[in-house]
């Protein structure tokens, strides 16, 4: 596998960087870690397949990979209600699986979006205006420590069983981490960074917009990442009641109807979507705050 160092290929997988050129992680280290990950994944699936194929566990408890894949394909297409029955139905619960996913993603987007719009200014106010911080911090800590399942019932009473109560739930789960991150970001801004800009002639307001806020950005983005993670774990709770379409609702409903292959397919889809979304936010971090951890 030795690569001749002298030939510089433009499309090679690991181009040899000239000394001193910026390197984003080691290319070789990255490809080995992917190799390991993929091997582990393959191994897991084979082990899963073996366990079910050898009938070590009843299929109702743990269906095999084939059954899950079949459920996944069926849920994304028009198919017969049951083999031999001539009635055609659409996906699962009248929506394709991807439509369930999109419905949940939309709720998360609106809930987290509202949490960003409210959470960041709130965090800025709490950390820069002393009395606002003193008054609101206990409530924020209180809200933060509540499990979402505890108050979903109340939200349904207040906002009805439709989408409004679900979005409220996601919002309430997502905004405390964003606000807390903003506060800790502002408190972490080095005093002399602000002093420096004031000595350059900045007003208090200019110091806020040109130093405090950008200096807080890495923490805020991290808070948003945490909030999105929270929103995923909350989305199933949000969709327990009247959650169709919704990937969380479908996972729950199919479980109660003993369609375990579909439940597992939903779980895998939720997991993959959550990891992918997290990856996108991480990517956004490297673009927006390239200085993170360096200054």
């Amino acid at each position: 596998m030795a690569q001749p160092v002298t030939t510089v290929t433009t499309s090679g997988p690991t181009p040899v960087a000239p000394p001193g050129a910026p390197r984003r992680g080691s290319g070789r280290g990255r490809s080995t870690s992917w190799l390991i990950r993929i091997s582990v994944l393959v191994f897991t699936i084979v082990a899963w397949w073996l366990v079910t194929e050898l009938k070590l566990i009843r299929p109702l408890y743990l269906p095999g990979p084939g059954a899950v894949w079949h459920a996944f394909v069926q849920a994304n297409s028009d198919h017969q209600v049951a083999p031999g029955v001539n009635r055609i139905v659409r996906g699962a619960q009248n929506y394709y699986l991807w439509e369930h996913l999109v419905a949940s993603l939309q709720r998360i987007a609106v809930g987290v979006g509202a949490a960003i719009v409210v959470g960041i200014p709130l965090g800025l106010m709490m950390s820069t205006v002393k009395w606002i911080g003193i008054v609101t911090e206990p409530y924020l800590n209180f809200l933060r420590s509540l499990p979402p399942l505890g108050y979903i019932g109340l939200l349904i009473v207040w906002f009805g069983i439709g989408d409004t109560s679900k979005i409220w739930l996601l919002f309430l789960a997502a905004f405390p981490p964003i606000t807390m991150a903003t506060i800790s970001g502002v408190r972490g801004v080095r005093e002399d960074q602000v002093n420096a800009v004031l000595s350059l002639g900045a007003s208090r307001r200019q110091a806020l917009t040109s130093v405090t806020i950008p200096a807080t950005l890495p923490e805020v983005l991290n808070g948003i990442r945490v909030a999105v993670g929270f929103a995923w774990t909350t989305v199933v709770a949000a969709e327990l009641n009247n959650g169709i379409p919704g990937i969380g609702g479908l996972a729950y409903l199919s479980g109660t109807q003993l369609q375990t292959p579909l439940t597992i397919a939903c779980i895998i889809v939720i997991g993959v979507a959550a990891v992918a979304l997290d990856g996108i936010i991480k990517l956004l971090e490297t673009v927006l705050v390239p200085w993170r951890g360096k200054a």
Partner: peptide, 19 residues
Amino acid sequence: RRPSAERGVVFQQPMLYPW
């Protein structure tokens, strides 16, 4: 009473803005 543009400060540790 407060910092001002008429008194420029070169800090012991550089205070540059990474953004």
